[in-house]
Design a protein around this nucleic acid. Structure first.
Lengths: 193, 193, 193, 193
DNA sequence: GATGAATGAGGATTCATTCAT
DNA sequence: CATGAATGAATCCTCATTCAT
């Protein structure tokens, strides 16, 4: 459908040139139509952006959540769960490179109107992550202090991996993911001894 | 000096709106002059950008390197050195927020002409970091395998902290820096036992 | 009927924004349909305009003529006839505010194609008005000179009232109408003495 | 000067096509420059309009006031003063046809932002006219009632002449002006007997 | 009858840049 | 050093119109 072509084209451009660099003409060309036609589907540039941005955030969130819910229900051990958490997120980004790059570009030089959506999303994600970590770690007999520290640690590793998506190739990212997982599990084990 | 005003104004704009969002008129206004006057100091928009970008990268590199050389020469223990490495980088970014945000914006949606400079810089920095880590860890009797793992770990923590600069306030960044340092040292200690 | 809705919507827009300000999209929205649908009823924007314009002029002319014919046939005295002439015109405009405002907007900044219609209408109206005034005044025993002067005077009062429709409210317009009538009758009486 | 050329060109276009019909490109062409250059002198289309509109209103007001002050000071009789009032206004409009037509076009289909300026101006003009009429008529020994009637009558004649500017040629306008003056004086004389 | 989808032309405005002063 | 004045190209967006459904 034309609308999807527009959204896709916009996504690619946001990924490589940011919001300001993605002109309506370029987006249209990428979608195989003329610039004027975009306005049949979207009120203006901002509305197109908002719809796309929101969609990208939703998709990512939904995917990660679904994947984790699945694992949590299956009653696996901590190691498997943490491994799944990291590889799910990492895989998602590796397989949705354009979305991820667009997301990063938009987060780091966000058009003003993106900021509320973004803030909202980050809050939701943080909240979800916190409660998910609680579920993962609930049988590990950790003190509050220990629990908080390990949570912060996990977030730090995820953020590190995320930033590295900008530079490293698949191979290296996979390796860094393993390092992160390994490290977290290692620390967890030490705590329990 | 006027030239510095121009560079400063450009930096602020790159930080908040990215390369495409920073028009010559806006830069000029921020510098208290008219757009035409910029051309007395810079051949064109690209030249201005290049000079500024190069300068920002240099400054950062030079600062971190100087700071680490100082510590390395003073023959402190591993802990101090790692602590210095992290807090130097972290402090620099916290105190040069505009430069950092501009850097991030430009890295994540880089105008084509920035890419060689960027690649070049990253290579140099990686190289320097690797050799510096070698110096820091040289007395710790690590196997090659262990050395590599811990290097990757350190880089991962640095990258995590860097990405978090986008969202967290000073307080939280400081805390996350402490978490990073704490765990690296912890891991190092475990390896040695 | 849809066609009437379109004409009505166009009328409102011509009244408030003139010909250039009345886009097909706005007209359609006002009629509760999509712009494309207008083309089922009208060949193009110009044809819609022409039909509407002609209709507005006709209606007004027909109304005033009908009303005056009625009075003329009833064989009233001069005063009543002049009073009727003025109040008929004045009332019509007050009760057809949109038509009147559209008419004024179109007369004062007329799209080229409107000008022949307009010229035609004005000629007809002038002609009718002249012959009507002749009928009204025929029993007043006026010299040609006197007759011409009083005709010009009447036209001048009508034009004054018409222009004032742009600014004054109903109340004031009614009052000014009375002033005009009073003045004309006064002058007429003086002539006869 | 270029700025004046722009204002002049805009004036002509407003006169013939109204605000909506006067595109920046057309205005620029009339001024012998390119559309982009207009923005060096005016912030945007609205600002250009406002400046021009205000200027037109001021000029007219100032001219009429100056002219009347002159006559009032010279202590002429009523007849001369009324004659001067009408011919001054009439002459001004006949000699500033473009300004007048632009004024009419803008008043009858006014862009929203023009309305406060317009309202303001009309109030000022009304006020001035009222007080001027008071000065003109002060020695005529009129009752309040009579004074008010004759004031309204004068305004009505002026409005009629103004509207007729849209259609009649110079010759006819002059004649109608004479008719108006003649009748006002006539009415005044009758009152005094 | 009505609309979804599309477009070429033109609208206002911004942009980087030039050049004479 | 700095700017006033100018512009071609590109920006976002609206317009009237078409055509298949």
């Amino acid at each position: 459908m034309t609308k999807d072509n527009i959204l896709n084209s916009a996504l690619q451009l946001y990924a490589t040139e940011g919001y300001h660099g993605a002109s309506m003409a370029k987006i249209a060309k990428g979608a195989g139509i003329k610039a004027a036609s975009i306005y049949f589907f979207f009120k203006n540039k901002e509305a197109l952006f908002q719809e796309l941005f929101q969609h990208v955030l939703m998709e990512h969130f939904a995917y990660v959540r679904r994947s984790m819910e699945h694992v949590l229900k299956s009653g696996e051990d901590v190691e498997t769960m943490i491994r799944t958490l990291f590889s799910t997120v990492s895989d998602y980004h590796r397989r949705h490179a354009a979305e991820t790059r667009a997301y990063i570009a938009l987060v780091t030089a966000p058009p003003i109107m993106a900021q509320p959506i973004l803030k909202n999303h980050m809050q939701s994600f943080d909240q979800w992550l916190t409660s998910t970590l609680a579920l993962i770690l609930k049988e590990e007999c950790l003190s509050t202090q220990e629990y908080e520290t390990i949570s912060e640690l996990i977030v730090l590793q995820m953020d590190g991996l995320f930033w590295e998506l900008n530079f490293y190739d698949d191979e290296k990212i996979k390796k860094q993911t393993d390092v992160a997982i390994h490290f977290i599990l290692f620390y967890l084990k030490q705590l329990q001894d």
